[in-house]
Design a binder for these strands. Structure first.
Lengths: 150, 150
DNA sequence: GAACTTATCTTGACTCGTTCAAAATAAGCA
DNA sequence: TGCTTATTTTGAACGAGTCAAGATAAGTTC
């Protein structure tokens, strides 16, 4: 549901106007999964050089609110966005370079969602972030080890 | 391991000096679970009025690195700290007021930790954040509903 | 198709949590 | 007690994100 026609429907259903900046922002998010705001601004400006950063921030916030895109913000990193929504998937973050990848819930039935309803909170979502090291950084580390410990 | 004697051991083992600001910061974190930096600064200054905010930031970062405390930073909120470390517990965050509470992993064996080792990442930690509504805000919402929908 | 209304965009200033840098201080050692 | 240098203080700076006012253009009405 991230084609131009799709987004027009979503926006109209929510009584929002369909504008060039908005369509461009959504296309950019769909084309660059896990991109941060700056990357999205650059991508948008390739096609529409005069779009302001504010318009991008506004659009991203709006789309996030409408559930068309999803915001991810691991500790120590700026916000990232992705157009893959609706399924219960999580993310791995590389501690060294910040690279982000999708991870489908390993166990079939999303067990993480069932927390003991502690402290009287009513829980509606479980957000899981896996921390680790990406293949590239693993390789770089191995390389370094060779040099440091000959 | 958050007594003054305990922290002295940890610091000395890491060749770090035991200073008044550091001890004060750790006490503050232990006394105010889930407090943000500003709260910790205030707490520290109750006993040591001349401690700078920079010293608090440095100490928090140091303790986090040494694993004595843990930093939590839910989307849209500033960093919080807690002295409860070592066990695999997670957190609930109230979407409305930002209140934070501990949640022990509901299922016995921490199933969330076993992600499919996707994309070649080597995963070392799974961080789970539950999102929901705290009892106070639930009550406030119910109250509001009564007024809005009589 | 032209005029109108107002949501959206542009522009530019601003906030706030956090970090940087240099000089002053005090912890731990000799 | 004095020395060395890790920490702290002080004060400025950074950057992602937000706010506000006027300009623009999407969608509606005539």
């Amino acid at each position: 549901m991230t084609s131009k026609a799709g987004i027009e429907q979503v926006l109209k259903a929510a009584s929002m106007r369909v504008t060039q900046p908005r369509v461009a922002v959504l296309s950019a998010v769909a084309a660059h999964p896990h991109a941060d705001t700056e990357t999205i601004i650059s991508a948008v400006r390739e096609g529409h050089p005069n779009v302001s950063h504010q318009a991008v921030y506004d659009s991203l916030k709006l789309f996030t609110k409408l559930g068309v895109i999803r915001q991810i913000q691991p500790q120590g990193h700026t916000a990232r966005y992705e157009a893959r929504v609706g399924d219960n998937h999580h993310h791995v973050v590389c501690r060294q370079c910040g690279k982000l990848a999708d991870v489908d819930c390993a166990v079939g039935g999303a067990p993480c969602l069932h927390a003991s309803n502690d402290h009287g909170f009513s829980i509606d979502e479980a957000e899981v972030i896996y921390w680790g090291t990406c293949p590239d950084c693993q390789a770089a580390n191995a390389q370094k080890d060779v040099v440091v410990n000959p």
